[in-house]
């Protein structure tokens, strides 16, 4: 029971991080970056391919790889689309996603690459007769620390202020001197770093990395930002958390029916959206952005 709750919170935390990465980029350029999946995947490959290095080095490299990949996407593809219709940008990012999957397939092969990363986290310990996995606790701690750090970054720093301003009105932010290229690049780098954190947690839990490794979590996180409200970062993170936590709980509650957890979760998502079509944290319901 306690383990189930811990699992729900930890999975929710991971999805919140993924959704936050998506939300940051959406905020500054109205781009729903489907290829966020491939940021998670590249970070995961990095972790697996460098597993013989000290863990810290391996983690740093994976953050660098995902951030670089995010910057490259921005530079080579998304930069030319600024101000385009969000639907066009979404489909481009879908194309970028498939393209990178195929590239990964060519480079790493279609079969999973695997290596045990951070083996120290795979065990369990007992508190008051209840067995608890180390991974779930570490994940929760990691997610909380990073969410707090992100909260600080967004609410208390100049960069965060610029990100918030740009999310509500980019044009005016530029008129005040906010450097658009630098700000958008920062958002991509941060989203890459967040993807690397998500990758780390996932690789520890399941070190079988294939070209589609980041896909499922990204689709769910995307649904999360819709549930939470696309126009606010808190909404994005909250939506991601809900999707992750609900999915985890459903896996326990449904027992043998857990193969349908995915479907049931979407039923819950649909109910939430019926009540609040603009997402949980939206103020204006459905009318704000058609």
């Amino acid at each position: 029971m306690i383990q189930a709750i811990l699992d729900a919170v930890s999975l929710g935390g991971v999805y919140a991080l993924a959704a936050l990465g998506l939300g940051l980029v959406f905020g500054v350029m109205r781009l729903v970056n489907f290829a966020h999946a491939e940021l998670i995947t590249v970070a995961s490959y990095t972790l697996v391919m460098t597993h013989q290095f000290p863990l810290v080095v391996s983690i740093v490299l994976s953050v660098v790889a995902a951030s670089l990949m995010a910057l490259l996407m921005e530079l080579l593809a998304y930069r030319r689309l600024r101000g385009s219709n969000p639907a066009t940008m979404l489909i481009v990012s879908f194309g970028v996603s498939v393209l990178l999957q195929k590239v990964y397939e060519l480079v790493f092969g279609a079969l999973p690459r695997s290596a045990s990363v951070a083996t120290g986290l795979t065990g369990a310990f007992t508190v008051g007769g209840v067995s608890i996995t180390i991974a779930s606790v570490v994940t929760i701690v990691l997610a909380v620390v990073i969410l707090l750090a992100m909260g600080y970054l967004i609410e208390r720093t100049k960069l965060g202020l610029q990100l918030r301003a740009a999310a509500s009105d980019f044009q005016t932010a530029r008129l005040l001197g906010v450097r658009s290229n630098r700000l958008i690049a920062s958002a991509f780098v941060i989203s890459g770093a967040l993807a690397a954190v998500v990758a780390f947690v996932n690789v520890v839990g399941n070190p079988q990395v294939d070209p589609r490794f980041g896909l499922d979590i990204t689709i769910l996180a995307l649904v999360g930002i819709v549930v939470g409200g696309m126009n606010s970062l808190r909404g994005s993170a909250l939506g991601g958390f809900i999707v992750g936590a609900v999915l985890s709980l459903l896996n326990v509650i449904l027992g043998n029916g857990r193969v349908y957890a995915y479907s049931w979760m979407f039923v819950i998502v649909i109910v939430i959206l019926l009540v609040r079509p603009g997402g949980i944290l939206s103020k204006f319901a459905t009318k704000e952005r058609v």
Binding site: L90, V226, Y260, Y262, F266, G278, R289
Partner: peptide
């Protein structure tokens, strides 16, 4: 349901639709 959402959210929510259908037929 989907058509009640605004355009972009509807587009993303259709991923969910595909996911559910896949999930059901797969299992």
């Amino acid at each position: 349901l989907l058509m009640r959402l605004n355009g972009l959210a509807a587009g993303i929510a259709t991923f969910a639709l595909l996911g559910v259908a896949y999930n059901i037929f797969f299992y």
